[in-house]
């Protein structure tokens, strides 16, 4: 346990050398590399901070831009909605007008169809009536009725207006017409003469008169002179009645 001065001094020297070695090869380089790493980390942190600030700035700028875009979008959407509403109202009005026109057209068509149906029904009724009357008069007619109709014809010819008479005779100037008288029953001689005399006096012509029988006339006569024809019989009257009634509509 004694103190060895040589060892003591050498240990002092050794430890001083150790301090130098460690300071030179351990502390300085290790602390330097740690400081460099810290500086790098600080630099990276600063750069990251700057980038973060820049990113925040960009984010703020883009958010502002987005808000502007959003505002513009809202304005444009509002304008578009207004335009759409106006167009919708216009189209609706146009459609309503078209519908009204179509409705009126359909109403007119329906009315026309109803009118045509009514007319057809009436026509049919008149035809039925005429047919019924024809059947009835076929059964009920006879020489008496024909005589009365013949007299009525003579009276009608006597009472023709001048205008009608001129119209009838204007087509016969060039040639003498042949008169054909068709009757349902044979006409008595006195009536034939009276009829011929009335006919020639009325028309102021001289024509050859021929007679013919046609039972389908039921009663009465049919007088044909050239293109002109006088129907004074039941059948033609009934047909004329039906056609006249239809034409009167």
């Amino acid at each position: 346990m004694e103190l060895n001065w040589s060892t003591f001094l050498l240990e002092v020297l050794n430890f001083v050398i150790l301090i130098w070695i460690l300071k030179r090869f351990l502390y300085k380089p290790v602390l330097a590399i740690i400081d460099r790493r810290r500086e790098n980390i600080e630099q990276q942190l600063t750069e990251a901070q700057n980038q973060r600030q820049e990113a925040k700035s960009l984010q703020k700028r883009y958010e502002t831009r987005l808000e502007d875009w959003e505002q513009q979008r809202r304005v444009l959407m509002s304008r578009l909605n207004q335009d759409l509403d106006a167009e919708k109202a216009r189209q609706r009005e146009l459609l309503a007008n078209e519908l009204q026109q179509e409705r009126q057209k359909a109403q007119h068509t329906i009315e026309q169809q109803q009118s045509e149906a009514t007319r057809a029904t009436e026509m049919r009724a008149l035809q039925l009536g005429a047919r019924f009357a024809t059947h009835l008069l076929e059964a009920a007619s006879g020489p008496d009725l024909e005589t009365r109709l013949l007299k009525l014809t003579i009276e009608s010819l006597s009472n023709l207006s001048d205008q009608t008479r001129q119209h009838m005779t204007s087509s016969w100037h060039r040639s003498t017409p042949a008169a054909a008288i068709t009757s349902a029953y044979p006409i008595a001689d006195d009536l034939r003469r009276e009829l011929e005399r009335t006919l020639l006096d009325t028309l102021q012509v001289s024509a050859t008169v021929s007679y013919d029988l046609a039972p389908e006339l039921i009663a009465g006569v049919r007088i044909s002179i050239g293109a002109w024809q006088l129907n004074a019989n039941v059948r033609d009257e009934l047909s004329g009645f039906a056609e006249l009634s239809y034409g009167a509509e």
């Binding site: 050398i17 070695i21 460690l22 380089p29 290790v30 460099r36 790493r37």
Partner: peptide
């Protein structure tokens, strides 16, 4: 001393970031 010196010298030449 020798071991520590050699070790530290080798270490100082191989320090990296």
């Amino acid at each position: 001393l020798a071991l520590t010196g050699v070790f530290c010298w080798l270490l100082s030449t191989r320090l990296r970031l």
